[in-house]
């Protein structure tokens, strides 16, 4: 997993079948990059659905969340529609897992991303990260704590 203080690798990935997003599009904004293994996990309030409900809290800290997995743009579209997600899901699909590998959170045997969180500041530097144990939804408290700390740092 990339260390804190590292410049976040840029990417250009599909968020919908006809739209691509680059990290550099968000320069001047804080980004929460949430790698996760796969769309369609079977529980109520899975990680992406939870973040969908906490968008308002992220916005309070001027942060944009991006979900990212190796699923294709079409799969993301169906998943986002079904869960009524109001934030982009990036398709790390071709070459598969390239971005997860750049961020050093790719699970080779499973062929999918680990559950990893990065908070990237306005200058594109990784300021916080967290790798969640397999199968455990890390929730949003860690992200919000990190964003709060960034606010405090800026003020002092």
């Amino acid at each position: 997993m990339l260390a804190i203080g590292t410049k976040a690798p840029d990417f250009e990935l599909n968020s919908t079948p006809d739209q691509q997003l680059k990290l550099s599009d968000f320069r001047g904004k804080r980004i929460i990059l949430s790698f996760y293994p796969a769309d369609w996990s079977p529980v109520c309030g899975d990680q992406m659905s939870l973040y969908n409900e906490t968008l308002k809290l992220f916005q309070k800290y001027k942060a944009q969340i991006l979900g990212i997995s190796v699923d294709s743009k079409w799969c993301h579209m169906a998943f986002a529609e079904s869960r009524k997600l109001h934030f982009p899901l990036l398709a790390d699909f071709e070459p598969k897992g390239a971005m997860a590998k750049n961020y050093e959170v790719y699970h080779e045997q499973e062929g999918q991303a680990q559950r990893a969180l990065f908070v990237i500041d306005e200058e594109g530097i990784i300021q916080w990260s967290y790798l969640s144990p397999d199968g455990i939804n890390p929730g949003a408290d860690g992200i919000l704590g990190a964003l709060e700390e960034l606010d405090n740092k800026n003020q002092s």
């Binding site: 309030g45 455990i136 949003a140 408290d141």
Partner: peptide
């Protein structure tokens, strides 16, 4: 309530706390 849950580490429903500590 919802916000306090998020800050307490609730990651789905139901989430339980026993004497203040999250029970997984």
């Amino acid at each position: 309530d919802f916000e306090s849950g998020v800050m307490s580490g609730v990651n789905g429903t139901p989430t339980f706390f026993i004497n203040g500590t999250r029970y997984d």
